[in-house]
């Protein structure tokens, strides 16, 4: 793949919708299931992923000519691990309460397939600024997915949004149970597929 011809806004929008890391690419599913009992968790982990993705992409794009092709993957891993350590230290120091809940997953970002994949597919072939926008798109796409699932589960499961009681009762306790994460993700993926099917049908009938 040669350097991308997409504009910056296209890169960001693709990351959020067409190439959404959770619903479309189906990568980094673990936090989408495990951490979406509330919107807050989704936001926090989303920020961490955004940070790691953007900084790793930029780093790799900047040093792409310096990386020896035979040690490409170890260099990626090292870069990601470094930025994960940095964000892990920062979160642990400044938001200790929230960190307690997402701590394990922040460390696990290092094993998320989405980040390595973007480095391999995009950052090592493109300029720093394009990688920056691609990283932002992917990061926000991930955050968007996390927040959507978190919204549904928090509203239905505990009747709250962002910790505030909005419904005053708990419609379906089932949704905060661990297992419900899988159902939510499955059903929402199906909805994304449905939208695509309808969209394609419209396009066909128009032409």
């Amino acid at each position: 793949m040669a350097a991308t011809k997409k504009t910056n806004s296209q890169l960001v929008l693709d990351g959020i919708f067409l190439e959404n890391p959770i619903f479309r690419l189906a990568l980094s599913m673990c936090p989408a299931v495990g951490l979406t009992t509330s919107i807050k968790n989704g936001l926090l982990l989303g920020t961490a992923v955004l940070f790691v993705q953007v900084f790793s992409s930029c780093t790799i794009a900047a040093i792409k000519n310096f990386i020896h092709p035979r040690i490409r993957i170890p260099t990626y891993t090292l870069t990601i691990a470094t930025w994960v350590t940095v964000i892990d230290l920062v979160l642990a120091a400044y938001v200790p309460d929230a960190y307690k809940q997402v701590g394990l997953f922040v460390k696990l970002i290092v094993a998320f397939a989405i980040i390595t994949m973007r480095l391999e597919m995009f950052a090592c072939k493109n300029s720093v600024s394009a990688s920056w926008w691609d990283g932002i798109g992917m990061g926000f796409g991930f955050m968007f997915g996390m927040v959507t699932i978190g919204f549904v589960r928090e509203l239905l499961g505990s009747g709250m949004l962002l910790g505030y009681d909005v419904l005053g009762f708990k419609p379906l306790l089932f949704f905060v149970l661990p297992a419900a994460g899988f159902f939510c993700v499955g059903i929402m993926m199906a909805m994304f597929n449905y939208v695509e099917v309808v969209y394609n049908r419209r396009k066909e009938s128009k032409s």
């Binding site: 470094t82 350590t85 940095v86 230290l89 920062v90 120091a93």
Partner: peptide, 10 residues
């Protein structure tokens, strides 16, 4: 990078 981050956040 990690060392700097550690010193600043510790």
């Amino acid at each position: 990078v990690m060392g700097t981050a550690f010193i600043f956040t510790d």
